[in-house]
């Protein structure tokens, strides 16, 4: 049971490493375009530019490592659904203003849009936001985007089944299972 799960995780992680986002992103868009309530945004809340920016930002919070990161997990689509379904327009506007501040800072200080920066340069800007030193962004912006990203990632298919070990039907219980055998978390 556990072996096959790890095999699958490694297989998917490997595919992502080889083909990058190109393979998985169309799947993500297919999910996002779905009309079932709660399975994706029902309305366009973000522009394409904003989505691209969010993709890049969330990817720095949960990056691609030996497993896919936030971009491949469709975190932006998750955040769009949350803003569509749960947030008042005022809160959406505030969030989008903060997002805009990230990009403006990048253009002013780095002479390039955030999405075109190297990952290390992007991380410098995210760190500024974390330290609440990014002009024009709300003090809580980093914690908000981090929480949305973490939740969106670890409840996505990739987060649930590739990054974590998913046992839909464990079939048995072992209360002294060696952590070293799995090296990460079982999905709750």
């Amino acid at each position: 049971m556990i072996t096959s799960q790890i095999d699958r995780r490694e297989a998917l992680g490997g595919i992502a490493a080889i083909f990058g986002a190109a393979l998985i992103s169309p799947l993500r868009r297919a999910v996002a375009a779905g009309t079932d309530p709660g399975m994706g945004p029902q309305n366009d809340i973000f522009s394409d530019e904003q989505r691209t920016l969010l993709d890049a930002l969330c990817e720095r919070i949960i990056p691609t490592t030996d497993t896919p990161g936030a971009r491949d997990a469709g975190v932006t689509s998750y955040i769009e659904m949350i803003f569509d379904e749960y947030y008042e327009p005022d809160a959406r506007e505030g969030f989008l203003d903060d997002l805009q501040a990230i990009d403006e800072y990048s253009r002013e200080q780095r002479q390039a849009p955030f999405v075109d920066l190297a990952p290390e340069q992007q991380d410098d800007i995210v760190s500024l936001a974390e330290q609440r030193q990014l002009d024009g962004a709300d003090d809580d912006f980093f914690e908000a985007i981090k929480q949305l990203t973490v939740t969106g990632y670890y409840t996505s298919e990739i987060g649930m089944t590739v990054e974590r070990v998913y046992l839909p039907t464990p079939g048995r219980y072992d209360g002294a299972y060696p952590y070293a055998e799995v090296g990460r978390l079982f999905t709750a």
């Binding site: 709660g38 939740t151 409840t155 996505s156």
Partner: peptide, 16 residues
């Protein structure tokens, strides 16, 4: 039954 958060509406948050 048997669905992970990724297979449930709103990732298994309460619907709005």
């Amino acid at each position: 039954e048997g669905r992970g958060a990724h297979e449930l509406p709103f990732r298994n948050r309460w619907p709005p």
